[in-house]
Design a binder for these strands. Structure first.
Lengths: 210, 210
DNA sequence: AATAAATCCCCCCGCAAGGGTGATGCCCGG
DNA sequence: CCGGGCATCACCCTTGCGGGGGGATTTATT
């Protein structure tokens, strides 16, 4: 049977209706099978080695250990498993934490069934997948603020500061005197209302100036 | 007619066949219309204000000004226009530059027609969109290296250093003596084979240790 | 028992960092 | 035409941080 080579999927989701819905959906899709389904991360982790899933559908809002914390534990047991977050949470912090922990995809729960199946396929092909609203968050995180109070040169120097360079190194790299660098830094501090490199970096990151 | 309220799209793409293919595809889709099509960014920029597009389909590999450089110039004229990159380039550097410059989506040219239309719809709804291979690049950029030579504490301290904090601040935040911080930093330098904060930050970013 | 991690301690020296004040030339906009 | 932002350079000052050199202890983990 094709079941022998089907992609093995487990689901960790505390809402029974949703869990069974996903199970049915995947069970109906040729080439994919549900290896198991759990209502908590703790239960799933105990059986993970036996289940040998290729992919984990993971909810964020689990009782006990959260889905976020579960990601790294799952990956510690099965390093090559794909983790697809499926959740209502759209806060920036949760999304970015999920991605840094090792999730390969992030879908919001209003996603249509076809999108879920499509995402699973993309992940198994080595791709990534995000809902459009999540993609928007992620893409925005790359973009700088267009209304920066800093001049071009000041921004450039602040970027070097954020790389840990000292005044003399910055001066050498930009072919200017280190006294000039000092002046720029003083102006940057004044504009950002800070008095140290650490505060300048923090202010710059918060305001997406660099 | 619905044409009066249709989403206005312009295409900047030097390959005539592809340009006309997209034009046809969009022209056939209700609610969307091609306001204009250009084979270079320079030409498009001259007419941009008159075209008043809601969305720009932009190729990276244009003759003359590249698509990457065109993004910020387009956004300078029409700040709220959506820019969707449609290209063969998948190099990390180009993808990330496009996103930092302000693109809202990034599709590779092997994308099926339905994916292109779907992405346009998502962008106009305020979402983002990426091909799966691009999404994987982007998601990976958030993830840290699992084989870090640094201990947990060392990683933590290196992160603070990358925020520009000095030894005393780090000590206060972690409730340890500043001499301890110093020792950790010495060990970090030794493990990374560097001799300064700047080099440590560079090495850490390159190796995705932080 | 042995190794790594995390903690703390002392020495040294140089110069980087932050603050103050001021000057020059350039170009833009009112 | 003049003010102001920008970029450049200059000199003065004080503090103490940064990096390098030693070594020691405790805990956890293997």
């Amino acid at each position: 049977m094709q079941d022998q080579t089907a992609v093995r999927i487990i689901i960790i989701e505390d809402d029974r209706t949703i869990r069974e819905g996903y199970s049915f959906l995947i069970g109906e899709t040729p080439g994919y099978k549900i290896a198991n389904a759990y209502s908590s991360a703790e239960q799933a982790l105990k059986k993970l080695a036996a289940d040998q899933p290729d992919l984990v559908l993971l909810d964020v809002g689990l009782p006990g250990m959260t889905g976020i914390d579960a990601i790294s534990k799952i990956k510690a047991i099965l390093p090559h498993v794909q983790v697809l977050m499926l959740t209502v949470h759209e806060s920036e912090e949760i999304v970015f934490r999920a991605l840094t922990e090792g999730a390969s995809g992030y879908l919001t729960k209003n996603s249509p069934a076809t999108k879920i199946i499509e995402s699973i396929k993309e992940l198994m092909k080595g791709g990534g997948s995000m809902s459009a609203n999540i993609a928007r968050l992620v893409i925005r995180s790359f973009q700088k603020n267009v209304n920066s109070p800093l001049s071009r040169r000041e921004t450039q120097i602040l970027e070097e500061i954020a790389r840990g360079k000292n005044r003399r190194h910055i001066a050498d790299e930009l072919f200017i005197d280190h006294e000039t660098v000092k002046s720029h830094i003083k102006n940057i501090y004044s504009k950002l209302n800070v008095h140290s490199r650490a505060d300048a970096i923090r202010a710059a990151r918060e305001g997406k100036l660099i």
